[in-house]
Write a protein that binds this DNA or RNA. Structure first.
Lengths: 133, 133
DNA sequence: TCACTGTTATACTACAAATATAACAAATAC
DNA sequence: GTATTTGTTATATTTGTAGTATAACAGTGA
């Protein structure tokens, strides 16, 4: 799986890493049980520090997306992915809400807004089963 | 309009301010041409520094949601709100995308995800014409 | 034993958020 | 004109996070 970092972005590097790994799982490019590079090798590949990678891995582990074992390294959660529980839905609400508010100010109606959300959803979902390139 | 700040949140204070003012415009609690408190008085009311308020106002001014005049202070854009141009739609996409990816990982299908987005949209839009309390 | 894994610890730089003062410039009220 | 209030600008300080740089520790498997 190819990871693209934007070092000029205002989004922290470890957050970009977290997002892209989650996207990889969502698209199926990363399959349950699949091995991830060690923090050292991925850091070297990306030209960043191992602690930055470790921060991303640790975050994903706490969220339940990764399992981490010594020597074996990190692997995508093989058994059950985290569920869309109430906590996640709350977070989803609180993050979508400001976007919806600004969309309304800018004159988008419900249909236009939902179409944009749908496009974002499908841009990921439709890649399922895609090549690992 | 009542503004609620969470000083424990990881969201910067000035961002919370920006979001709530945009929400106020979206719901109609803040009407075009309406006067906003001066940076000093609002800062005093909220118990924060005037520069924090000023940062929020300046941001909203650059986005086109506010007009700022000396002595008259800040007021909600009276003529034309910013539009949902390509730039905004791009930003909307790039912010919804990571949320959609995580939702997919957590087993939400398109319908469930869109329903959540719809709920966020309606939670704001349905307040239109609400009291200024 | 050796090499590789994640983990922890420490130190440092850089930057953003927030505060605290202070002063400046324009517009209004008197 | 004078005073007041407005946003604006400028410094400085504190605090916390991001990221890097080393280094060492602790399991695990060959």
């Amino acid at each position: 799986m190819i990871i693209q970092l934007d070092l000029e972005s205002d989004i922290p590097i470890y957050t970009q890493l977290v997002n892209q790994i989650i996207e990889g799982i969502a698209t199926g490019q990363l399959e349950p049980g699949e091995q991830l590079p060690s923090v050292r090798s991925l850091a070297a590949d990306l030209g960043i520090n191992l602690h930055t990678v470790n921060k991303a891995y640790t975050h994903l582990k706490q969220e339940g997306f990764l399992q981490i074992h010594r020597q074996r390294g990190a692997l995508i959660q093989p058994h059950r992915m985290p569920q869309a529980d109430a906590s996640f839905k709350d977070r989803l609400q609180s993050e979508v809400r400001p976007l919806a508010a600004e969309a309304i100010c800018r004159g988008m109606d419900e249909e236009a807004f939902l179409e944009a959300c749908r496009a974002a959803f499908l841009s990921i979902h439709y890649n399922k089963g895609g090549t690992t390139s």
